[in-house]
Computed example of a mutant assay.
Amino acid sequence: MTAPIPGADGQSARPLTAQHYSVAAAQASPEGYVAPGMPGAPVTGYDPVSPTGPAAPRRRLTLAIGSALLAALLGGLAYGFAPLRAADSLGWFAIALAGLVALPLGRLGGPARLLPPLGALLAASSLLLGQLTQHLRQIHADGPGPRGLLRDTLTAWHTTLRPLDAAFYAIALIGGHLLTHRTTPHP
């Protein structure tokens, strides 16, 4: 004969404690109901923003390029009309020119692949315009030579190029590309 084991007949020797349930009781749901967030649930509150037609992105792109061209022109002229005695210290202004061009390209243009290289070229051309304007002002102040104002300006610009100017053009190119890419809103 065997002795009875406590709890073998369903009774336990442990004291009774509160019972906890980790799963809530199933509630009745209407026929065809799908819980929110589950596959097959209807999406509510979602209104896709679509442009008013295929010409809307093109308009934004042309607005971005036009405003960047204007910014490059104004930035180059501001660089060129700075006081002549400060011409040597203005090379670092290439970063500001790159930012000035990149802001409208990135913010208005959107994620177009054309815009970062265009930002680089516009920043470098703005720097070139500024340097040519400085030399033009200097030659105009000294009096034009026998070859003409434009040719004398290009000759003076070419003869005064330094290795540091190449670094400033590199800064303008890289800065224009990177800043345009970074100011572009990514979805």
Rank of each mutant, 00 (worst) to 15 (best):
L118V: 09
V43N: 08
R182Y: 11
Q27T: 14
Y79A: 10
V43R: 10
H186I: 01
G145W: 01
A82S: 13
S29K: 05
A55R: 08
S12H: 03
Q138T: 10
A123C: 11
P146G: 04
H158R: 15
A98F: 00
R85I: 04
R60K: 07
Q131I: 02
R59I: 09
P42R: 13
P36F: 00
L179W: 05
L132K: 04
L77H: 09
P116H: 03
A172P: 00
Y79G: 02
G45H: 02
P48D: 04
I65T: 14
P4I: 07
Q27F: 07
G175L: 03
G40A: 05
G110H: 02
G145M: 03
L61H: 02
P48R: 04
A98C: 08
A25W: 02
Q19N: 11
A24P: 12
S89E: 13
L154T: 03
I171H: 09
V23P: 05
A156P: 10
P144E: 06
A167D: 05
I95Y: 07
V101N: 07
L136V: 09
W92G: 15
T180F: 03
L179I: 07
T153W: 03
H140I: 05
G109A: 12
S67C: 09
G7W: 01
A68P: 10
A102W: 01
A3F: 08
P146S: 11
A96G: 15
L69S: 06
R147N: 08
A25P: 10
A28N: 04
A25G: 12
D152E: 15
H186W: 12
L74T: 12
T159R: 15
T2M: 08
G10S: 04
I174Y: 12
A78L: 14
A72Y: 01
L74S: 13
M1K: 13
G75R: 00
L154W: 10
E31V: 05
G110I: 01
L129Q: 10
G119N: 04
A94G: 11
G66K: 00
T44I: 03
L103R: 12
H140L: 14
L121A: 15
G91W: 01
Y79L: 14
M1W: 05
L178N: 09
P117F: 06
P36M: 01
T184R: 14
P104E: 02
S126D: 12
L128C: 08
L74A: 14
A166H: 10
L154G: 02
A166P: 04
G40C: 03
T62D: 06
G53P: 01
W157S: 09
I5V: 15
L122I: 06
P36C: 04
L115Q: 04
Y169D: 10
G75V: 00
L77I: 05
L73Q: 03
A72L: 01
S67A: 14
S50G: 05
R85E: 15
A112F: 05
A87C: 08
R58P: 11
L100Q: 08
